[in-house]
């Protein structure tokens, strides 16, 4: 008796939940398109609205040197960190940073923080769910291998090899989109440091990542090297904002232009990609 009752209750609960899912899945798409359009219009002429007045909340995953990381004293730093502070200064807001795992970082966009500046590559897929500032960094994908490994000379050699990437990065997207590469051959790590450890350990044949990441790793880790410094894809980093927040895009682009014009941008490039040697 009891058993039947329990099963019934369980079934009901599942039906209910699935029902909600189905109900939401169906009609919601056309509806939310409307909302987005409305949002754009309404937002267009108004003042920029921040989650917290006077404070620009930015998120990144501080595991991506030299863009965002923690120094030996566990203090946040990096190219993105400095750039965002400069942009904030121009826009007239104090910038607060959140260190968030990359695989969930976009979920909080517009709810937990205003922007994501975390070496985010602008691509079509992302443009469906978020908006971007103008590109602020050119970062194509390169291949990193163990020093002396000659099995890979270029992207044409990638199929059939074990390839490491950080979860949610452009590297993962690029490899997933290459049809000749089997899904099982793409090893997805929590972050690039782990991907490089497993590369050295022999778990993968190559790691695919953005140029600055590769160069920084090669600089501090003498067991790995770049197959070529020339990227095999064209990638640009942008600052991600919530879909429809065109006022924010506008202000960011104005500030970016000013940073580049004033020469501050070039100073940062030198600081993080010429002078910075990497830790460890």
């Amino acid at each position: 008796m009891l058993k039947t009752k329990n099963c019934l209750a369980l079934g009901l609960v599942l039906l209910l939940v699935l029902g909600i899912l189905a109900g939401c899945g169906g009609p919601s798409e056309p509806v939310d398109l409307d909302e987005e359009e409305n949002g754009v219009e309404e937002n267009g002429g108004e003042e920029l609205v921040l989650l917290e007045e006077g404070v620009l909340k930015a998120a990144f995953n501080a595991d991506f040197p030299p863009f965002e990381m923690r120094d030996e004293n566990d203090v946040l730093c990096g190219f993105d960190y400095d750039l965002m502070n400069e942009l904030g200064k121009i826009m007239g807001y104090e910038v607060h940073f959140d260190d968030v795992p990359f695989d969930g970082i976009f979920a909080g966009l517009g709810t937990a923080y205003d922007v994501v500046i975390s070496g985010v590559t602008i691509n079509d897929e992302r443009l469906l769910t978020m908006d971007f500032s103008d590109p602020y960094f050119d970062a194509g994908q390169v291949i990193v291998v163990r020093k002396g490994y000659d099995g890979i000379a270029g992207e044409e050699d990638l199929p059939g090899k074990k390839l490491g990437v950080q979860i949610g990065t452009t590297g993962q997207d690029v490899l997933t989109d290459m049809e000749e590469i089997a899904d099982d051959d793409i090893l997805v790590y929590d972050n690039y440091p782990l991907a490089f450890i497993d590369l050295v350990n022999g778990g993968s044949d190559a790691v695919v990542c953005d140029v600055p990441v590769a160069k920084t790793e090669a600089k501090r880790n003498d067991k790995v090297e770049l197959v070529s410094e020339e990227p095999f894809t064209v990638e640009f980093y942008g600052i991600a904002v919530a879909k429809g927040n065109s006022k924010m895009v506008e202000e960011l682009n104005a500030a970016l232009a000013q940073v580049k014009e004033s020469g501050v941008y070039d100073e940062l490039l030198v600081k993080w990609f010429v002078e910075y040697e990497g830790e460890e």
């Binding site: 899912l21 899945g25 919601s28 939310d32 919530a242 429809g244």
Partner: peptide, 9 residues
């Protein structure tokens, strides 16, 4: 503030 739209599909 722009809330992200949840796409159940």
């Amino acid at each position: 503030m722009v809330l992200q739209v949840i796409k159940w599909s």
